[in-house]
């Protein structure tokens, strides 16, 4: 018999994780990406094109329904995690 989702003995893998990746939008200057690009060149790494930096935010969610979890993470991203004037985001569930 398996434990109910909220049961104290519920296995940790039943928790859902949303991984939000936030990146600067195309056309928005990314000075950190540029600095990394130059540093890679200085270190002798050839063949590196444009470098862009962003951030990854992991959210542990109580929600167990994937669609609801995605919707919740999207609302969080729009309201706080990303500034959609300059950043875009994508969400993966794990």
């Amino acid at each position: 018999m398996t434990a109910a989702p909220n049961h104290p003995n519920a296995r940790p893998e039943q928790k859902m994780k949303a991984i939000v990746t936030v990146m600067p939008k195309a056309g928005v200057l990314d000075p950190q990406g540029k600095a990394i690009e130059h540093a890679l060149g200085t270190l002798g790494f050839g063949g590196v094109g444009e470098v862009r930096t962003g951030k990854i935010i992991e959210l542990e969610l109580a929600e167990t329904d994937p669609a609801a979890a995605r919707a919740a993470a999207e609302a969080m991203a729009r309201k706080l995690l990303a500034n959609t004037v300059i950043e875009s985001f994508r969400i993966e569930l794990a």
Binding site: V28, L29, P31, Q32, A35, N83, V85, I86
Partner: peptide, 17 residues
């Protein structure tokens, strides 16, 4: 104010870092 949506646009990292 830009983050709150009371003014448009955003302030990015300085171009020269």
């Amino acid at each position: 104010l830009t983050e709150a949506g009371l003014l448009p646009g955003a302030l990015l990292r300085n171009a020269g870092l």
